[in-house]
């Protein structure tokens, strides 16, 4: 226990002083994006990992959050920072609707319904031009020129999100979520209102994802439907972050976010310019291979199978 607290303190200090040690905009940008993914991955994990309701459509919450902030800023002139609050809330409303429709379905059918939901929102954002400006996208002016304020906002958001989920999982809600995952019928007969608590989980999850979306709007200052409602770059990535890091673990998605952003960037930039250019085309392939590897050898993800990883590393060291 003491060791854990020490590790958290050290980790906390590293994160707090990071932007003063590493001054390169490029690396700061990568960590900001990774922190944003910590939020999305953790909220996906609350719904899919803990409550067992696998979502293939988290892009809809992300996109709605981003568009809420963007539209408030461009149409009503409200600071997009307010949008972070409203983005989360509007996402929650969408979550309420999605839950009302999709929670009539179970298991793979729920997953497919969310997949369709995500695509529906992408098409709405593309075609409702009077509200969203369609494919033109939304452009705002960044509040800060330095990356440091964004870094701390992302850090605070990530910390707040993980801590909130940690608290939830230690409470009655947490017990209910896991019970629903393990056996919905048994949970129902033990007096758990499964429909209600699945919705609670979805609402918390969509709130944080929406906030992450609004943060993205603030940070990148430009969004269009193909980016924020992307099945590939948002919905699937959220799942990968969860699976690689470790489903149903508190720190799993956080680790997964850094690994996935790292892998994605390494390949996108063709090993930071060292490798030939065509490598960057192969990053989707590498994602696929990584997922196969994780599912075959680390079914519980990096955090979930940490003991196994440690054991194997030690064995290799001992034998060499």
């Amino acid at each position: 226990m003491k060791k854990n607290i020490l590790a958290f303190v050290i980790l906390g200090i590293i994160f707090l002083i990071f932007p003063f040690v590493i001054r390169s905009d490029y690396y700061q940008h990568l960590v900001i994006i990774a922190l944003m993914w910590v939020v999305i991955g953790s909220s996906w994990n609350l719904l899919a990992g803990y409550t067992g309701q696998v979502s293939f459509g988290h892009a809809m919450f992300f996109g709605v959050g981003a568009y809420t902030a963007g539209i408030l800023a461009t149409k009503l002139g409200i600071s997009p920072w307010w949008g972070m609050m409203f983005g989360g809330l509007v996402s929650m409303l969408i979550g309420l609707f999605v839950g009302w429709v999709c929670f009539r379905l179970r298991g793979p059918y729920f997953a497919l319904a969310t997949l369709a939901g995500g695509e529906i929102f992408r098409l709405i954002a593309t075609n409702w031009e009077s509200l969203t400006d369609g494919m033109v996208g939304i452009l705002i002016i960044q509040t800060f020129r330095s990356k440091v304020p964004y870094y701390y906002i992302a850090l605070a958001l990530a910390f707040f999100c993980i801590y909130a989920i940690h608290l939830i999982m230690k409470s009655k809600w947490g017990y209910y979520f896991v019970s629903i995952r393990e056996d919905q019928d048994a949970a129902e007969s033990l007096g758990i209102n499964t429909t209600l608590y699945k919705n609670v989980s979805l609402l918390v999850s969509s709130f944080f994802t929406g906030m992450a979306g609004a943060f993205y709007m603030n940070y990148m200052a430009f969004i269009d439907p193909q980016v924020v409602f992307s099945l590939h770059y948002i919905s699937i990535m959220a799942i990968l972050v969860g699976i690689v890091g470790g489903v149903a673990t508190i720190m799993g998605p956080a680790v997964g976010a850094f690994v996935m952003v790292g892998v994605q960037e390494t390949f996108r930039s063709a090993f930071f310019g060292i490798a030939p250019k065509w490598i960057s085309q192969a990053h989707a392939l590498v994602f696929g291979l990584l997922v196969i590897f994780v599912i075959m050898f680390l079914a519980n993800g990096i955090v979930g199978d940490w003991q196994k990883i440690k054991r194997n590393v030690f064995r290799i060291r001992a034998s060499s």
Partner: peptide, 16 residues
């Protein structure tokens, strides 16, 4: 059984 929960957690969940 809620398989991946401990016996104590199983019963705690229903005690709520």
């Amino acid at each position: 059984p809620l398989s991946r929960m401990t016996v104590l957690e199983n019963i705690t969940a229903s005690a709520f």
